[in-house]
Simulated scan of single mutants.
Amino acid sequence: MVIDISSIPVSEVRWRGSVRIIRSIFPPIDLFEDIADPADWPLIISAEQKTNPRLMETIGNLDLVPEKRRVAGSGASYLMAPFTHVSTDRPSRFSDGTFGVLYAGNIFEVALFETIYHQGQFMARTNEPAGWTSQFREIVLEINAHLHDLRSNEVDQSGLLLPDDYKSSQTLGFQLRASDSDGIVYPSVRYSGGECVGLFHPDGAANPIQGRHLDYHWNGTKVDLYRDATTGQIFRIV
């Protein structure tokens, strides 16, 4: 299905305290954190590959991010990694997995409910026993981008915001990214009243800071609790 993208308004989105939650198993990538000028990265990678053949497993496919859209410095891994580590085995709402999208919620609860849904889907699919599961980390960041806006009642959202069917929304994501869109802002499907962004380039976000470490509890049917690993506080998800 081809969607008329000219019918979708573009809005300036500036969020402070936006939240993204990711798995804790992924460490920061030194290249993105320590080398200030992205223009130097290709030469450094070429030199390093001669002595470190596993380097590309860490960095991913840098060619997927245009040089002018790359970011560097403290916290840059949190912005770059979603775009350099992609796979058709990991499609998302607005991508079939051939290109990256950085998703974030406007508040913590949005990011929490979005991630516990997907964690629950994974746990059910793999028939995991009940108990505390994978560790996650909260990333607090700023969103500064002009995004195609699905929040308006004037936009035909039919098929684009379905709970589990991503066919139409992936088509839209492909069309918008091909037209050089910065990304999409849309109502959260998992948390009523919340909003999400899906950025097509890392420079649509800035100043990422690691927040809390979180543990999710799987009761055999759903994720029913989360724990702040720093304080030990446990919260029920309702």
Rank of each mutant, 00 (worst) to 15 (best):
S134W: 02
D30C: 00
D180G: 01
M1V: 12
P42S: 15
S192D: 13
V86H: 03
P9V: 07
F136L: 15
E48V: 09
D37I: 08
R177N: 12
H217F: 13
Q157R: 15
G194K: 11
D96E: 12
Q135G: 13
I237D: 05
E109A: 05
Q157I: 15
G193S: 02
S181K: 02
L161A: 07
S87R: 13
D180S: 11
Y186S: 07
E12M: 02
D165C: 08
K222V: 07
E67G: 09
A72F: 09
A81L: 10
V10T: 10
H201F: 10
D89L: 13
S6W: 05
V86T: 13
Y166S: 09
G173V: 00
V2A: 06
A72D: 07
R20Q: 13
Y226R: 04
A72K: 10
N153R: 13
K222N: 11
L62A: 10
L225P: 00
K222E: 15
I44Q: 11
Q157S: 15
R54W: 06
E142I: 00
G131Y: 01
K50A: 15
G183E: 02
S188F: 13
N153C: 10
T115N: 04
G100Y: 05
G100E: 04
D165A: 10
I184K: 04
G211N: 11
V13D: 14
D165I: 06
V65E: 06
L43R: 15
E12F: 00
P202D: 02
G159F: 04
C196Q: 07
I45A: 07
G75Q: 01
L112Q: 00
G198D: 09
T88L: 02
P38V: 11
D215M: 15
V238I: 06
L161M: 09
P129S: 12
Q175S: 01
D165E: 10
I184P: 02
R23L: 14
D149G: 04
R125S: 09
R190V: 15
D165Q: 08
Y103A: 04
A178Q: 11
P91T: 01
A205E: 04
D156Q: 05
P28G: 11
S168C: 03
P27K: 13
Y166T: 05
S11V: 00
T133F: 04
M56T: 06
I116D: 02
I184F: 05
P27G: 14
F108H: 03
I8Y: 06
T221P: 01
I234R: 01
S77Y: 12
V10F: 02
A72G: 10
D63F: 01
D149I: 02
K222Y: 05
L141A: 10
C196S: 08
G198W: 04
F108Y: 05
L141W: 07
D203Q: 08
G204R: 08
L102W: 02
S92I: 01
A39I: 05
L162C: 11
I5M: 02
G97T: 06
I59Q: 12
A130H: 08
S77L: 09
S74K: 11
E114Y: 05
R227D: 00
